[in-house]
Amino acid sequence: MEAAQAQWVKVHPLVVRVTHWINAFAILIMVASGWRIYNASPLFGFRFPNDLTLGGWLAGALQWHFAALWLLVLNGIVYVGYGIFSGHFRRKLFPLTPRAVLSDVLAALRGKLAHDDLAVYNAAQRAAYLAIILCLVVLVLSGLAIWKPVQFQEIAWLMGGYEGARLVHFFAMALMVLIALVHIVMVILVPRTFPTIITGRARRMS
């Protein structure tokens, strides 16, 4: 390696990288097992293909779902705690205005969204990451309401009762999966972002 090339910038702190991958793994398990659980009593007129699900049967899927739940929640507490107390959220996700999000989303759709400094999230990224965090919070809360509609009946009540919580859980999942898919497509379109979430650093642009 020549000295000239060794100009690195720090993009993602270690905590963010570790929690990102644990989160990705936990979400994969939660979604795949959740789809199997959904199939046992579909809310709508469709089922998820069994090949895309995890657990093999209802009991297996429930075991996966309620095991990965702890991974998701504990990891989420570490990430959100770090994000709030280190100032990471404040620095990286804010300020965020609807106008900036709209203009960046439009730019991205035209393929004209710059992403020079990987350490700085553009407004579309900020909105997406914030939305996924909120989706996960809603998923955990609605999940608690479905799991414990008596012990946590106050949460269930906020969502219109047990059946309401099921709907909230489903739609929060759908939105989260949609955002995650867009996220993956963006990474494929801008592949140099991918190593940064593993190594934490990127080569300086200019």
């Binding site: 393929g111 969204l113 710059a114 020079d116 700085v120």
Partner: peptide, 8 residues
């Protein structure tokens, strides 16, 4: 911030 197209 200078904006450049993704392609470039």
């Amino acid at each position: 911030m200078k904006k450049r197209s993704m392609e470039t």
